[in-house]
Amino acid sequence: MPIFAPAAAPSRSELIEHLVRTRIAGDVATPRENNLSHYRKLANGDRHYWLGLELGERWQDEQDVLAVMAERCGVVDDPGHRSGQDTIDPEMTVGALDRAAAELRKAAEGRRRVLFATGHPGALLDMHGALAQSLHEAGCEIVRVPLGTVTDEGVVVQFGGVAVHERGASLWHTHSPAPMAAVLDQLRRKGELPPDLVVADHGWAGCAAQQGIDTVGFADCNDPALFLGEAEDTLAVTVPLDDHVTDPRFYEPLTSYLLAATQTQTD
């Protein structure tokens, strides 16, 4: 049984309306102060905010980070806007979903090996699981994480083909790249090829992209690293969205839209 049974896909305009209404995009819950704090910490070299990417000294100016986030995520581009409401442009979200669908179609057409993972299991597990099910049905191999992959005082497990980090019998929200690094290391140790494509978020996506794997990432407006990675062509696509709104079912229309766009040329 698939984790997620997709409903009819919304039109582009219907999806944009839904994204704004649920605050997945538009006026999002993440305050401007939090966004700017994360941009500053990334620029100051705090690797927690690099999400597994190696950014070197290329992004030491907070204003350069803000400029990329305005261009690719749709946050307010005014450097003088220091507090209050910030935004994700829903048009950018849907445009990135279309680009992500193109990567998924390419994977399906090539019967590629794909690894799905999420650091936000409380919100995005169903979305990733539905995509994994769709690609499996299209003939892709969904990469299985080797048993006993231990990392960050926990273990990597899979639900519906989606890798997550478990600690103390709980699924953890994590930004760490260590779980993905552990998975890729275990695959190498077992003589298995790495994935051809990774679809993930947070450090799962950043680590895979840094190791040269084609990667589609999902990222919030306070997680700038993946957008910088896309700007540098390290990630294939980064989809801007609030990655943990109040109910995971709010992501279902987005998932249906993405599935429909993915399947357009694979049926």
Rank of each mutant, 00 (worst) to 15 (best):
V145K: 08
L42V: 00
M127G: 05
G84Y: 02
D242Y: 11
T246A: 14
D77S: 15
P224D: 01
V150F: 13
P179D: 09
V20E: 15
D98W: 04
T174R: 01
A138K: 12
D89E: 09
A209Q: 05
V28Y: 07
Q60V: 12
D27N: 13
D77I: 01
A67H: 10
G203H: 05
P2E: 14
M92L: 15
G191M: 08
P224E: 00
T264C: 03
R47N: 08
F4W: 15
L254D: 07
A9P: 11
L197K: 08
V145A: 09
F4I: 14
T215Q: 08
A100V: 05
P177G: 09
T151F: 07
G191V: 05
P31T: 00
P90D: 07
S11R: 07
A107L: 03
T215D: 06
A25W: 05
L42F: 01
S83R: 14
V94P: 13
D86H: 01
N44R: 14
H81Q: 14
P10H: 11
E103D: 13
C140P: 12
G110I: 01
D247S: 12
E54Y: 01
V145Q: 12
E109P: 02
L184A: 02
D77N: 13
A178S: 13
M69E: 07
D27Y: 13
M69S: 08
V65G: 00
P90S: 07
A102N: 03
L226M: 01
T264A: 15
V65H: 00
D89T: 05
T255P: 06
L51G: 00
V145S: 11
M69P: 09
V76H: 13
A205C: 02
D233K: 13
A132D: 11
N44C: 02
L115T: 06
G191C: 08
T234P: 09
M180Q: 07
H244R: 12
T118P: 06
R12E: 15
A231Q: 14
G168L: 06
V199W: 06
E103M: 13
A205M: 01
V237D: 04
R47W: 02
E232N: 02
G95H: 10
V239N: 03
D267T: 06
E166M: 14
L147S: 14
E230T: 03
D214A: 15
P146I: 08
Q211F: 08
H120Y: 12
L226C: 00
A132L: 07
E109W: 06
T262W: 04
G45L: 05
V162T: 08
F227Y: 08
K190N: 14
R113E: 13
E153V: 06
I16F: 02
K190F: 06
R58L: 00
V183C: 07
D27M: 05
P177C: 04
D242Q: 13
M92A: 12
V28T: 13
T246V: 11
E91I: 03
A107R: 10
L197C: 07
G26P: 09
T87W: 15
